[in-house]
Design a protein around this nucleic acid. Structure first.
Lengths: 237, 237
DNA sequence: CAGTGGTCTAGACCACACG
DNA sequence: GTGTGGTCTAGACCACTGA
């Protein structure tokens, strides 16, 4: 009972995408809509699904492209490691861009998360991780100003706050408590990761603890579908 | 620079939702679109965002409602526990519906995951978990027919395959390897969870191992935003 | 500049829930 | 039946990219 063009369209579009070589460009939306005999709005609804599955990639002003197989960063969550370290292990080159380092005053959320008073000075580092010029993750770390200063960052930052703290050796880090969520991309995050608003992202909210129990880093991470495979081993109670 | 009505609309809608008591009904979409001076399509785009954040809930043929605070099931991922056990611990009543028990032959994916041959008989249990008559999770477990038969299920099933196997005591279970993803809801999953197509869901793909290393359960789980908070403690390497 | 995807409109019809 | 949200259309204009 395919009442809706959408079902047919999904399968037509799937066939079309499968028939094209990776990296190739799809016809423009108006052309494709006419060819598949649906309105552009309906076509775009279907394309949204395929983009969410990582099969195509749309870029404003450029076109829509078939995505080939990409290297996957597979990681167990029991250990906390930087993306750089993970990528290095599987021989994948990653780069850092859209780097922003700023000072700010602690708002209520950050103050609570970091266990400090509202208004204290914080250091915030945000950046995008790329593999092969595609953005794959957007990371925002917020630390108390006395733990990491903006000045120190300008000299030493290579992409990972964790690696920087480990290299420095102090404070002594113990573990991270990480909340795991699925969210739709906010306009800001969507822009950074070059995806559409409300596209599906895996989202980690993490608090990094020292051995003395202090929280020294409150971080938000956003991961694009397809480039990462996170897993966890769960013991039977 | 609010070039688009969308930005203004987001804030107008947020104000409206915040001003209404929980559980209350919003005006119909055509009425609201006229009131906020946007087209219905644009309004629905904005509403999609808010539904993704769990602030409203749309039900076809009924209306759109403000969602109040809901009890959150908070769980560490290190231990494998059934949703029933988790809910029970925080005093939350859950129920099971849309229960389907079926036999099928192993396709390639299931055969690989379960370490068996293609074509062997499997038992599949799918069901929806509700709290307070709202669906919150959709679970699909697939097991080899010799591990769990359809007949045995009809007598003993209470909602959790894990609890059933543990109650039975055999096979002896050790751990689960769980992949964690964020996905948009497929039409089937969307229908089961009473959400829209492509709505954001947290998705677990898990293989349950016995102490002897055999995989006895390959499961897919889909979790609605807002009802669960999953976290993991990550040791610094 | 031309061509692309991104947003928006106004209107229509369909599927569903409930009285 | 009535009213709701779900889908779809045809067309328009905006913002971005790259030649």
């Amino acid at each position: 009972m395919a009442h809706y063009p959408f079902r047919r369209l999904q399968s037509d579009l799937a066939d079309l995408i499968a028939s094209l070589p990776p990296e190739s460009k799809l016809p423009s939306e108006p052309a494709l809509a006419h060819q598949l005999r649906v309105s552009r709005a309906t076509l775009r609804e279907a394309m949204r699904s395929f983009e969410g599955q990582g099969l195509i990639r749309r870029r404003q002003g450029v076109g829509t492209f078939v995505v080939g197989q990409v290297p996957v960063i597979d990681s167990g969550l029991e250990l906390l490691e930087s993306i750089e370290k993970l990528a290095q292990r599987i021989g994948l080159a990653v780069s850092v861009g859209e780097l922003q380092i700023e000072e700010l005053s602690a708002g209520e959320d950050c103050a609570t998360a970091l266990g400090i008073s509202v208004g204290l000075q914080l250091t915030r580092i945000s950046r995008v991780i790329y593999t092969d010029s595609h953005p794959v993750a957007y990371l925002v770390d917020t630390l108390p100003g006395d733990v990491l200063s903006v000045d120190e960052l300008h000299d030493n930052f290579s992409g990972s706050v964790l690696d920087l703290l480990l290299r420095r050796g102090t404070p002594s880090l113990a573990y991270s408590r990480t909340d795991i969520k699925a969210i739709g991309a906010s306009p800001e995050v969507a822009r950074k990761l070059q995806v559409q608003r409300d596209d599906v992202l895996l989202h980690f909210v993490a608090s990094l603890y020292t051995t003395s129990g202090r929280v020294v880093d409150y971080s938000f991470s956003y991961f694009l579908h397809g480039y990462f495979r996170f897993h966890v081993v769960r013991r039977v109670g």
